[in-house]
Design a protein around this nucleic acid. Structure first.
Lengths: 255, 255
DNA sequence: CGGTCCCTTGACAGCCGTCAACTACCGTGG
DNA sequence: CCACGGTAGTTGACGGCTGTCAAGGGACCG
């Protein structure tokens, strides 16, 4: 399977073989393993490198003095934790692992080299940065305007589409290694209310959620229930229509 | 008065005379006037240039199909609307003017020139981008975890500090050209509840809000009521301690 | 002076949080 | 093998924060 970062960026632009080679090199740098519930980065630390999630799920969060916690974002395979973050003196939030995580630490020299020599990759990384900002904005809308069932439905739509973008869905199903308490912290609801709301969504036939697997029998219906508009994910790639006649590009190393 | 953008970036790094000259040139490009309640950018449009607010207040917002509206961010003088936004095919949100606004439209060529020839300015712009992302994250926390009075108090703290950063406070006061209905859309509350909550904050002596002027008699107290931690604004500039003995900075000891 | 926008107030309802107990599941170890 | 403990999920009772609806007041303006 191709590296999820390459797969994701391929949604924005068509990468050359050379581009892909650079990105593969990136994904091989300083690989680290993180255990479940361990922190990858902690608030107050000096950020050093940029972290690239190779496998597993992670999450960004902030804690208030009195213990309240908000999950601010989910990181899926192929996600980068903030390009150029090392410009800042210290982290203003933490990043933890939801599952065992494999990540690559990209030294800033490597990023600098890319900006100098690989303009197309640079642009794709900018696209990724802008999409992440858009996702964060959409979360603001989600928490500010949507009711409980809409919030959860919206989150599921987003995660499903993002996972599909990196090839981690199987038909209408995907993994969802998030506990109800974590869903609560991500949606600004209480765990009890998340539980009840999930039952509503199940009864409405909008989701099937068992174990750690989410199934979406009718994505359009779920999107409608969430007032979900996918435009903020910016998946409408330029030149996508050309891909049909473009088999030899797909004939890269794969299983 | 110096341009607010220069003033803001000066919070992060010490700009050389040359750096400032470039930024002044930037602020003089294609200046436009926008009337109150007019839109500067509209969802669905192709973004062309980067907008720099020279004077006045603007706001980013998204609307759901059924009319609910969320204000996602406030733009103050010196703020840029998304570096490199023109990479995206279309806007996923709108930007409107809260007051009459003067802005400069920066063509991408100018941005490209800066990245090539002015590394220090480039870094400062990255800092600005990262801080904006941090602000958006903090809004997520605000909407997800804080109660009504905390939310409003937090918003006031943030706006006050940001305005102070560009020299737009007078002592413990600043302008606040936001109606209660707009505060409601920014905090995810109803206008009625905003009204009542503002009264609570007034009674508690935390704010004085009359006309379009906000006074904060005791900023520390307000910050405490909001569980406000300013670290996300990243105001701790490297080398700040040197500034005291450094009156004529324009001379710039090392370029 | 009428109109509009903004702010304010009261009554009432409902979504959602809290508290607490209970079940289910799973891996561990006696 | 079963007891045990811990985590995750579920359920019920109850209350409160916040939303909705509706009406009225004040300031500004053409």
């Amino acid at each position: 399977m191709t590296c999820p970062l390459i797969r994701k960026l391929g949604q924005f632009t068509r990468l050359s073989g050379d581009d892909k080679r650079v990105l593969e090199r990136v994904a091989g740098e300083r690989v680290r393993q993180i255990g479940v519930h361990e922190d990858i980065l902690h608030e107050g630390e000096k950020p050093r490198a940029i972290n690239l999630i190779l496998s597993g799920w992670a999450y960004r969060y902030k804690t208030l003095e009195d213990g309240r916690r908000q999950i601010i974002a989910f990181f899926l395979p192929g996600d980068l934790c903030d390009l150029n973050i090392y410009i800042l003196r210290e982290m203003d939030h933490s990043v933890g692992a939801l599952t065992p995580v494999t990540l690559a630490e990209l030294p800033r020299t490597l990023v600098d080299e890319i900006t100098l020599n690989h303009p197309r990759v640079t642009q794709a990384l900018w696209w990724d940065t802008l999409v992440n900002a858009a996702i964060q904005r959409e979360w603001t809308v989600n928490l500010g305007q949507r009711a409980a069932s809409e919030r959860l439905a919206h989150l599921f739509c987003e995660l499903f589409l993002r996972l599909r973008g990196v090839g981690l869905t199987q038909g209408d199903s995907c993994e969802l290694p998030i506990t109800q308490a974590e869903l609560a912290d991500a949606t600004g609801l209480s765990a009890v209310h998340v539980n009840r709301t999930l039952q509503d969504l199940r009864v409405a036939g909008l989701i099937v959620l068992k174990g750690k697997t989410l199934t979406v029998p009718d994505l359009d219906a779920l999107m409608q229930a969430a007032l979900f508009n996918s435009n903020y994910l910016h998946l409408d790639r330029v030149g996508r229509h050309l891909d049909a006649n473009d088999q030899e590009l797909a004939a890269e190393p794969r299983a």
